[in-house]
């Protein structure tokens, strides 16, 4: 048993789907606790597959994966909830529950992990305040703008105090000003010691922030460097 100090560690990870699509062909990278990184790549390059691997939604065909100290490649199904409580995921399509209000959507994630009513009453308003939604707690997702829904998804990802936040295309359908707002929010969360991995294909955004960028294409890493290095025009 090796001592794990990395937040995320992938080594030679391969993923071939049931229909023989080779989504990942040997991915290796590491995220240290408290790091902020972008994962970029064209459509179909395997970004979402990496996220699904990190939270144990799919199993790798080959390779080692560890997340927050969990050996995800060999994790037992009954341990998955514990892993997922340490990782907050913000999905491309938000995945909010339409029948629940903003407050309930966030509270529900806490309830699902067994928090008490008192803990929920304290924590949810704090998190909604953090993402700037304190005025919209009683609204339903359908009554919110895209950016506001995005922030509900962020609040939900944050509420259980995860060690790692993964955002899949968090700015996918937002205008540049809103996108920057969301990224600023994610950076603020990062400053509170949470590791953040942002998946995106918006070159202008990535260039604006001097952060580490992991670029993949065709299931392989093609560059990994600090300072907003990002030279694939077509993304």
């Amino acid at each position: 048993m090796n001592v794990v100090t990395n937040m995320v560690h992938l080594r030679d990870v391969f993923k071939t789907y049931a229909n023989n699509t080779k989504a990942l062909k040997g991915i290796s990278f590491t995220l240290e606790p408290g790091e902020f990184a972008f994962l970029v790549g064209p459509s179909g390059s395997g970004k979402s597959t990496i996220i699904k691997l990190l939270i144990g939604e799919v199993a790798p065909t080959d390779g080692d994966i560890s997340v927050a100290g969990f050996d995800v490649a060999n994790i037992k199904p009954r341990r998955l909830p514990q892993l997922r409580r340490r990782v907050g995921v913000i999905f491309q399509d938000f995945r909010l529950i339409e029948k629940k209000t903003v407050y309930e959507n966030v509270a529900f994630a806490m309830r699902a992990v067994g928090a008490s009513n008192q803990q929920i009453r304290q924590r949810v308003p704090y998190v909604l305040d953090l993402v700037g939604l304190d005025m919209k707690t009683k609204a339903f997702p359908s009554e919110l703008s895209g950016g506001e829904q995005q922030r509900v998804a962020i609040a939900r990802a944050l509420v259980n105090n995860p060690q790692l936040i993964i955002a899949d295309e968090p700015t996918g359908n937002l205008d540049p000003a809103r996108s920057l707002e969301i990224l600023t929010l994610l950076q603020k969360i990062n400053e509170l010691q949470t590791t953040v991995l942002v998946v995106t294909h918006e070159k202008s955004l990535v260039d604006r922030l001097s952060r580490r960028v992991i670029a993949i294409d065709g299931g392989r890493i093609i560059s990994d460097g600090a300072g907003g290095y990002y030279n694939y025009e077509e993304f």
């Binding site: 939270i55 939604e57 998955l80 909830p81 514990q82 892993l83 997922r84 409580r85 995921v89 999905f91 995945r95 529950i97 529900f108 994630a109 699902a112 992990v113 939900r156 259980n160």
Partner: peptide, 11 residues
């Protein structure tokens, strides 16, 4: 979808 969300947040 709701069930999938629950699973993903660690229920």
């Amino acid at each position: 979808d709701e069930i999938a969300i629950m699973k993903v947040v660690g229920a």
